[in-house]
Design a binder for these strands. Structure first.
Length: 444
RNA sequence: GCAGCAGUAGCUCAGUUGGUUAGAGCACUAGUUUGUGGAACUAGGGGUCGGUGGUUCGAAUCCACCCUGCUGUACCA
C-alpha cells in the first residue's frame, strides 16, 4: 500500500514581500489623505498608469544602460517583454510622450502607486512598495524645483513631523558636471563610479571616499570595492571643490532665492547629494529624517532617505521629438510610514466595534434592533460573530480591543434595560435603550 | 552580488567529549459546576531541530552544498 504524501502549500511569502497590518495601513491612509489635500491645494492633476509596461518603454532609458534588465520583474508576453514598473517617473515620461498634444503645458501631475524592484530587501526596504510622485513636465522654470521642496515639506509637517525632524538636502548636477569638465573625465564608467563614490561622503567620510575615487576600498567585512582610478591631484581638486559651503552654480543660487520668497528655510546645501542617476540634469534633492529609526529588535539602523528627486530635462525627449524639460520628487510611503510608527506620540484613532453578546440565538431579533440603533448613530457595532459561551465572547471582545460589550439576556430583556460593560474600567451599568447611544459615546 | 554571523514549537530561547519517546516561558485550545474578558490553576494540541546529501551502530549536535534571516558592503531608476 502506498500513501501519497500531499505537498502542503507554502505559507511563506516571497523574499522581500510582506503582509501589512492595520496599524500601518491606517497611518498610510492618513499620510495619503494629507498628500491628496496638499496636491489639490498646489494644483496638481491626479494620474494613474498601469503596473505593467512594455520593458522597452521603461527599460531602454534606464540610467544604468550597462545593465538594463537588472532589478526589474519581467516576463515575456507572446510578442514582447513586459515589466512591472520600478518607479513612477519612467511611466510618466512615457505618458507625456504618448499624450503630448492633449496635455496642458506645463503638465503638473501627482501619482500614488505600488512599484516593484527585484533587489535585496533590508529593514524598511521591500521589493514591493508604495511611492508618491509629484512632477512638473514641460517647464525649465526653477520655480518648479523650489515648489516641489516646499510642497514635500508641507506634506511632512501635516503628517506630524516638526522642522527639527527632517531636512531637505539640495545640490545640483551642474556642480559635478563642471567638475568633470575641470578634471577632464569623459570615460562614462569612471564618471559613474565617481558619482557613486561621492554619494557616500555623508556615510563613509572623505577618507574612505578618497579610496573609492582612487584604487578602491575594502569594507569592514573584508569585501573589496573597485575604485574610479583617478589621479591624486584630481581627487584633491574634487575634495576642494565639494567642500565649499555654498554653491557656485547659478541654478542653485536661484532656487535658494525662491526659497527665501517662500519663506522656506528647512533645507541645506550638500554637495554630496548625487542620487546615483544618470538622467538628472539640474537641481537634485533628498528628503532625510533626523531622528533615530530602530529595527524590530530596537537597534538603531542606517535608514537613509525617505525620498528625493530632481530635474531631468532629457527624459521625455528620449521617447521622440518632444522637448519636455521636467522636475519631480518622490517619497517612499512605506518608509515614511515605518518611521512615523516609531514616533511614540503618533497615534491614529481606531474605532473598534462595541460587541453585542449573544445569549440565545432566538433573541437575535433583539440584538439586531440594538445593533441598528447604534449603527444609525454611527457607532461601530457588531453582534458577536459566532456561537460561543459568554466567556469566549468576552475574550473575543477583549482581543479585538472593543471599547465595550452589551449584555442583553433574559433578565435585561424583561426590563428592556441592556447592561453596558466598559472593557477598560470593567464597570457595568444598566441603561435604558434610548440612553444607550449617549452612554456609549461617553466610553468611546 | 560580496563578506561576517545566525536558523530548535506561532514568538523568545535552553539543549556539546554525537546516545533511548527533543524542552521551558509566553501564545493557542479546552476546562476550573455552565450570564462576564484582561489574574490564577488544571489539562491538551503543536516541532521531518531551515533543506538536501554525507560521516557514524546512532546526528539538533560533525562535514559539504543549498535556502532563509540579520549586519556591513555593492547596486538602487
Amino acid at each position: 500500500m502506498t500513501i501519497e504524501k500531499k505537498e502542503k502549500p507554502s505559507k511563506e511569502l516571497p523574499l522581500g514581500f510582506v503582509d501589512r497590518q492595520e496599524k500601518e495601513l491606517l497611518i498610510r491612509d492618513f499620510v495619503i489623505s494629507n498628500i491628496k489635500e496638499v496636491m489639490i491645494k498646489y494644483g496638481f492633476q491626479y494620474l494613474e498608469t498601469p503596473s505593467f509596461e512594455y520593458s522597452d518603454s521603461i527599460g531602454k532609458f534606464l540610467p544604468d544602460k550597462d545593465r538594463p534588465d537588472q532589478g526589474v520583474f519581467s516576463f515575456k508576453d507572446e510578442k514582447k517583454w513586459l515589466s512591472l514598473r520600478y518607479d513612477l517617473t519612467a511611466p510618466l515620461a512615457r505618458y507625456v510622450a504618448k499624450n503630448y498634444l492633449e496635455i496642458p503645458k506645463p503638465f503638473k501631475r501627482y501619482q500614488l502607486g505600488t512599484v516593484w524592484r527585484n533587489e535585496k530587501p533590508g529593514p524598511g526596504r521591500f521589493r514591493e512598495f508604495l511611492q508618491f510622485d509629484a512632477d512638473f513636465v514641460g517647464t525649465k522654470s526653477l520655480q518648479a524645483d523650489a515648489e516641489l521642496c516646499v510642497l514635500i515639506s508641507e506634506i511632512l509637517e501635516r503628517c506630524g513631523l516638526s522642522k527639527e525632524e527632517y531636512i531637505i538636502k539640495i545640490s545640483s548636477r551642474k556642480i559635478t558636471e563642471e567638475l568633470f569638465k575641470k578634471i577632464k573625465i569623459d570615460n562614462n564608467e569612471q564618471r559613474l563610479i565617481t558619482l557613486r563614490a561621492l554619494d557616500k561622503i555623508d556615510r563613509l567620510g572623505w577618507n574612505e571616499v578618497k579610496q573609492l575615487l582612487g584604487k578602491g576600498r575594502k569594507d569592514k567585512s573584508g569585501d573589496f570595492t573597485k575604485g574610479a582610478n583617478l589621479s591624486l591631484s584630481n581627487i584633491e581638486i574634487i575634495e576642494k571643490e565639494l567642500n565649499k559651503k555654498s554653491p557656485g552654480t547659478k541654478d542653485l543660487l536661484e532656487v535658494f532665492k525662491i526659497f527665501e520668497d517662500y519663506d522656506f528655510s528647512n533645507y541645506e546645501f550638500d554637495s554630496s547629494i548625487i542620487r546615483g542617476l544618470e538622467y538628472y540634469t539640474g537641481p537634485i534633492f533628498e528628503v532625510n529624517l533626523k531622528f533615530d529609526i530602530k529595527n524590530n529588535k530596537g537597534k538603531v539602523i542606517q535608514y537613509g532617505s525617505i525620498g528625493g528627486g530632481g530635474r531631468y530635462d532629457n527624459l521625455v525627449n528620449n521617447f521622440g521629438n518632444y522637448d519636455a524639460p521636467a522636475t519631480g520628487i518622490s517619497i517612499g510611503l512605506d518608509r515614511l510610514v515605518y518611521a512615523l510608527m516609531q514616533k511614540k506620540e503618533f497615534k491614529i484613532k481606531q474605532s473598534k466595534p462595541v460587541v453585542i453578546c449573544v445569549f440565545d440565538k432566538n433573541l437575535m431579533k433583539e440584538y439586531i434592533s440594538l445593533q441598528k440603533i447604534l449603527r444609525e448613530a454611527d457607532i461601530s457595532t457588531e453582534i458577536f460573530p459566532g456561537e460561543s459561551k459568554l466567556k469566549k465572547q468576552m475574550e473575543y471582545a477583549n482581543k479585538i480591543k472593543a471599547p465595550a460589550v452589551i449584555l442583553y439576556g433574559e433578565d435585561e430583556i424583561k426590563s428592556k434595560k441592556p447592561t453596558l460593560r466598559d472593557l477598560n474600567s470593567g464597570k457595568e451599568i444598566s441603561v435604558e435603550i434610548k440612553e444607550l447611544v449617549n452612554e456609549i459615546k461617553k466610553i468611546i
